[in-house]
Design a binder for these strands. Structure first.
Lengths: 146, 146
DNA sequence: AAAATATACTTGTTTATGCAAGGATTCCTT
DNA sequence: AAGGAATCCTTGCATAAACAAGTATATTTT
């Protein structure tokens, strides 16, 4: 079986990259359009806190598959914007606990609706079964490379 | 039909984002491991030039779906690293033409092999038909959001 | 030919990432 | 209890992205 020549634009890597970027850019623009001062990366963090408030930076990094420096600075930015608070752990001074603010709690529904809507836009007209297969392949890619 | 509650980690957006990032990070590490001074973004540019040398920044931006400032600075970096040259268009002084260097021409096979290998790693064990469906869905997402 | 418009590119600013290296605090070992 | 290791986080440095605004050159309009 002869292998096809490599063509960037037909490759899984390129298609993944472009689709992902379009998706995150679209979400960013949606947030902006609604005057929500929020990036998709910040949304990822908030999302984790909506599931469980008061997590450590470490946990947030692991859950979102980022390194700790990234999370550290992401959190700095989110604090500046009044989205979260950083509180020292009462027993262990190494640890910071990250909490939602009243503001970000209030915004949960709006943020979530916009995220869900963006995904619907992206998947518009895609057959349910094919979408499920695509998600399965993406999971497999993640397992393969992790 | 009741809509499922939004869960970040089950969402198309999250899975796309993580799979894409794992893929590009893996490629970056592969380049680094072989002492190839190259990022995946730079590889995207080179890839276009391997198909057709001497393109304008404009074309490269359009082909890679980036904006012009990004490409402008990406190219600055690639020139520093000796991967490409920027030459003024003989007739139209607004236009820069971007050319491969002897070095990057010589490296084409190595770079390409590594990119292809990374994609094979990522797709290891994925059924051919399912992969094709996934690629089709990714194309649809790109069309939907563009 | 001068003015207005369009095109190609660059610069400025903010946000985010990856990796390496550096604190501080806690835990473990002896 | 002291020394070393582990844990959690931050800082430094380089790369890249998005958007807005600016510059230079070419083209079109009047």
């Amino acid at each position: 079986m002869k292998k096809k020549a490599y063509r960037l634009e037909d490759s899984l890597g390129y298609k993944l990259f472009q689709a992902s970027r379009l998706m995150t850019n679209t979400l960013n623009r949606h947030f902006k359009k609604h005057n929500f001062l929020l990036t998709h990366e910040q949304w990822q963090i908030l999302s984790r806190l909506y599931e469980k408030d008061g997590q450590t930076q470490n946990e947030l990094a692991r859950l979102n598959e980022k390194d700790e420096p990234s999370v550290s600075r992401l959190i700095d930015n989110m604090i500046k914007r009044g989205l979260i608070d950083r509180k020292a752990h009462p027993q262990d001074k190494r640890i910071n606990l990250i909490y939602l603010t009243e503001y970000s709690k209030r915004m949960e529904k709006d943020y979530t609706a916009l995220a869900a809507q963006t995904i619907q836009e992206a998947a518009f007209g895609v057959d349910e079964k094919e979408l499920a297969i695509c998600l399965k392949v993406l999971d497999k890619v993640r397992v393969n490379l992790k």
